[in-house]
Amino acid sequence: MTDGKFLTPKEVAERYRGGVSIGTLRNWRAMRIGPAYMKIGKSVLYPIGELEAWDKKNIVICREPKGLAMRPDVQGDDPSRAVPTSPNKRHRFS
């Protein structure tokens, strides 16, 4: 086993900047969900390759919203200052 190939639950929690706690990882292991792990004796280790695969599997790809029109800023007609507006929200300016 080479150093750096596996992370402890504490290191995994740090990897996800506190978004996933050690307790959450423990619960996920009990429910057999979350990233794959190895158990050696009492030690729980997460292979980095499995974490990266889990990251890719859980990525959310957003699309550009449909129907957004650009309107000139209220202050003038400068197109470089255009503000996106939804076609469903029309504003009246006086």
Rank of each mutant, 00 (worst) to 15 (best):
32 R>C: 03
30 A>L: 02
59 I>E: 15
85 T>P: 02
86 S>G: 12
14 E>W: 02
83 V>T: 10
91 H>N: 13
3 D>W: 11
30 A>H: 00
45 L>F: 13
84 P>L: 12
91 H>M: 13
44 V>A: 05
40 I>W: 02
79 P>V: 03
67 G>V: 05
66 K>D: 05
70 M>E: 01
9 P>I: 00
57 K>N: 12
63 R>P: 02
67 G>I: 02
32 R>A: 05
26 R>F: 01
69 A>Y: 11
36 A>M: 11
81 R>E: 13
48 I>E: 03
86 S>P: 08
35 P>D: 04
19 G>Y: 12
3 D>N: 13
24 T>M: 03
10 K>W: 03
43 S>D: 11
66 K>C: 00
38 M>K: 12
76 G>K: 01
15 R>Q: 04
29 R>T: 02
33 I>A: 01
52 E>Q: 14
38 M>D: 10
38 M>T: 10
66 K>R: 07
69 A>G: 07
20 V>H: 00
89 K>D: 13
91 H>Q: 14
41 G>A: 10
85 T>A: 13
87 P>I: 04
66 K>H: 05
43 S>A: 15
81 R>F: 14
33 I>K: 03
47 P>V: 10
67 G>K: 02
25 L>T: 00
93 F>Q: 15
94 S>P: 15
36 A>C: 09
40 I>A: 05
65 P>H: 09
45 L>D: 06
15 R>Y: 04
31 M>I: 08
34 G>I: 15
92 R>T: 14
77 D>N: 02
51 L>F: 06
25 L>D: 00
11 E>T: 04
18 G>C: 08
26 R>M: 03
78 D>H: 07
48 I>T: 09
8 T>Y: 09
28 W>T: 07
54 W>P: 01
93 F>T: 14
29 R>Q: 07
62 C>W: 01
4 G>L: 08
39 K>I: 12
70 M>I: 00
90 R>N: 13
58 N>E: 06
92 R>F: 14
68 L>R: 13
47 P>E: 05
13 A>H: 10
90 R>Y: 12
92 R>A: 14
58 N>A: 05
92 R>I: 15
18 G>P: 03
8 T>L: 09
4 G>M: 07
43 S>I: 15
83 V>Y: 08
27 N>Y: 03
64 E>I: 02
71 R>N: 03
84 P>E: 09
19 G>E: 14
90 R>I: 15
60 V>E: 12
59 I>D: 15
62 C>S: 04
21 S>I: 00
84 P>M: 11
49 G>W: 08
79 P>L: 03
60 V>G: 07
54 W>G: 06
41 G>H: 08
